[in-house]
């Protein structure tokens, strides 16, 4: 044991360092510890929403504080951060968030999915299969999948406790009765590890199959409602469906006008005042990568052997007669 008091020792571990006026990654250490403890509970109970205390991270409106808080809590000097908004790295939000963490944490940033250790996202999962050494952080507006069925938190807590999810099945089946198919096309509820119903955040249901057995850790943050939930790597995540109406993802007649991809999530882009339109990959990095590898709209097969690996599970579930892409526009 040491009886010597060094100057370093006079600083308890719980103190916040911050010579520049703010702490590393902006968030104070006490808030980080609270979020870290909540995060560990979230991965231990996959799909369960862990409430956390404290105040909302003071950030400009519209940034989505949940995802920012999680990123600030997890990020370290060795990380490389990618931020996507609707699949794109170059939206105002995505650029601002990347710059924010480059400034406050001094981390490397990238637009390349393959080069990122942390990916903060709103509304999409990258097309490229994520790896086990990557973490995907979702910005979540409304964490409770049962909220529109039952507004009272005390009641939804009970429904989760009793695994009483019949009301959601009824809601989806009403779609079938009315439209002949399940009309819900994003924010499509999933069951995690056969136990908790979870809101995957407003990603298109096209992305839902990617969550199943994903090698990367998935963390979800809702800032306003102060909830964290998680899906550990290699965890079963199944979209709700019915025996006679199995879960289906969106598909398009068209291919990407830039890279020719017939298997990615496509955005419809209006070209001119005459209303001419084209379809392009929503995942801008995936599209760029394919173009670099020689894929074009005219040559969708590209050069042999260079296809970036799309997520395999998404291919399995693809069908033709599904929701039109227009319904996806948020």
């Amino acid at each position: 044991m040491s009886s010597q008091l060094s100057s370093q020792l006079n600083k308890p571990a719980t103190q916040t360092a911050g010579a520049e006026g703010y702490n590393f990654a902006y968030l104070d250490e006490q808030s980080k510890r609270m979020l870290r403890r909540a995060m560990l509970k979230a991965v231990a109970i996959p799909g369960y929403q862990v409430p956390f205390g404290g105040r909302e991270m003071p950030l400009p409106h519209g940034w989505g504080t949940g995802g920012m808080q999680l990123t600030a809590t997890v990020i370290g000097e060795a990380d490389t951060l990618k931020v996507i908004d609707q699949g794109a790295d170059d939206t105002t939000n995505a650029v601002s968030i990347r710059r924010f963490f480059a400034k406050t944490a001094g981390v490397e940033t990238t637009e390349h999915t393959a080069d990122a250790s942390l990916i903060q996202t709103r509304h999409r999962i990258p097309e490229r299969q994520l790896r086990n050494d990557q973490i995907l952080i979702y910005q979540v507006p409304i964490p409770e999948p049962l909220r529109f069925i039952e507004p009272r938190e005390t009641e939804t807590r009970k429904m989760h406790a009793l695994r009483e999810y019949g009301a959601m099945q009824v809601k989806l089946y009403e779609d079938v009765a009315r439209f002949g198919h399940i009309a819900t096309s994003y924010d499509y509820p999933v069951m995690v590890n056969d136990r908790y119903m979870m809101d995957p955040s407003p990603i298109p249901k096209f992305d839902n199959p990617k969550m199943n057995q994903m090698p990367a850790l998935q963390l979800f943050g809702a800032g306003f409602e102060k909830r964290i939930y998680a899906v550990p790597p290699y965890t079963k995540v199944m979209s709700l469906d019915f025996d006679d109406y199995p879960f289906e993802v969106q598909s398009w007649e068209e291919s990407c006008s830039i890279c020719g991809s017939d298997h990615s999530f496509l955005d419809e882009v209006i070209m001119d005042d005459a209303g001419n339109k084209m379809f392009v990959c929503s995942d801008t990095d995936y599209c760029r990568e394919r173009v670099e590898q020689g894929f074009t709209a005219e040559n969708p097969e590209g050069q042999q052997g260079l296809t970036p690996e799309p997520n395999q599970s998404q291919q399995e579930r693809k069908t033709q007669d599904d929701t039109k892409a227009e319904e996806m526009a948020p």
């Binding site: 044991m1 702490n23 250490e29 980080k32």
Partner: peptide
């Protein structure tokens, strides 16, 4: 008289251990 040093860098080391 029984105290000893914690992390060299409280912020960075806590982040590393947390990960």
């Amino acid at each position: 008289d029984l105290l000893m040093a914690g992390f060299d860098d409280a912020v960075q080391d806590a982040q590393k251990v947390f990960r």
